[in-house]
């Protein structure tokens, strides 16, 4: 049976993890590779590396990092953050990334999605959407790391992206992100039951029950979280054992 995926997300700046914390088993909390190895040993199903490096020159460090990650871990990983050109993606994939995620650049230039999926295949193109529920009760697309509002509804953009060849949707609810009050079940469910491609839910994980809800009630194919794993609030083995007891298929 196909299992639900648990995906830790690592924020990367200048080749180092942001908000790194010391685990007993790793020497350097700021080294993304050490943390990646630890998470993969603990049973993470995939990893996402989100590069928040500001400058173009520093982006070279990302390619070097991707090489080191690929050489050292034996599970799939996605690289995202500021990707806007086919050449960027070619370089990341050639160096061992399994998938790339695109966000703002794809919204501004939707043909980027079709260009990428035609050249590399849909399976490695993840469309990341930052979304916020407004007072009118509708979910809208936000850009630039959530700083810029658009008038486009999330469902419309997601459907368009599927038609263009996106292979998965990584959906982050800005209303929920950082709250630890649970995932945004309504928009996750809306996308997950409407779209023919997998939906990764992100934003709001605080307890193990939140994962049950996003898988059982909202039908997410995968759930992504950062701080609860980084700060050891929830261990991946505990989480997966718990989900298994809840009759949610997971890889143990």
């Amino acid at each position: 049976m196909l299992t639900k995926r648990i995906i830790p997300c690592l924020d990367i700046k200048d080749g180092r993890t942001v908000k790194g914390i010391n685990f007993e088993s790793i020497r350097d909390a700021g080294d993304p590779v050490e943390l990646a190895i630890l998470y993969s040993q603990q049973g993470a199903d995939e990893l996402v590396f989100l590069d928040i490096t500001a400058t173009v020159e520093k982006r070279k460090t990302l390619v070097e990092l991707v090489k080191r990650i690929a050489a050292n871990i034996n599970i799939p990983f996605t690289v995202g953050g500021g990707i806007s050109a086919v050449e960027d993606v070619a370089l990341l994939l050639q160096n061992g990334a399994d998938k790339v995620s695109v966000n703002t650049a794809a919204f501004k230039n939707p043909t980027l999605i079709s260009d990428l999926s035609n050249q590399f295949g849909s399976q490695c193109i993840v469309l990341a959407i930052d979304t916020k529920k407004e007072e009118d009760g509708e979910w809208y697309v936000y850009l630039n790391g959530g700083r810029t509002k658009t008038d486009t509804k999330t469902m419309e953009w997601a459907k368009q992206a599927v038609a263009l060849g996106a292979g998965e949707i990584l959906l982050t609810s800005m209303n929920n992100d950082g709250t630890k009050n649970g995932f945004a079940l309504d928009i996750t469910k809306a996308l997950s039951t409407t779209l023919p491609i997998p939906v990764i839910a992100s934003g709001g994980a605080g307890t193990m029950e939140h994962f049950t809800a996003v898988f059982k009630d909202a039908g997410a194919d995968a759930a992504l979280a950062a701080s609860i794993f980084h700060y050891k609030e929830i261990g991946i083995p505990d989480l997966k054992n718990y989900l298994c007891q809840q009759n949610i298929p997971v890889r143990l």
Partner: peptide, 17 residues
């Protein structure tokens, strides 16, 4: 070919037995 929309996603992505 999924039997219905939203039941099985294509591509088949992830860990299966």
């Amino acid at each position: 070919v999924p039997p219905a929309v939203g039941v099985f996603k294509v591509p088949h992505v992830g860990w299966n037995s």
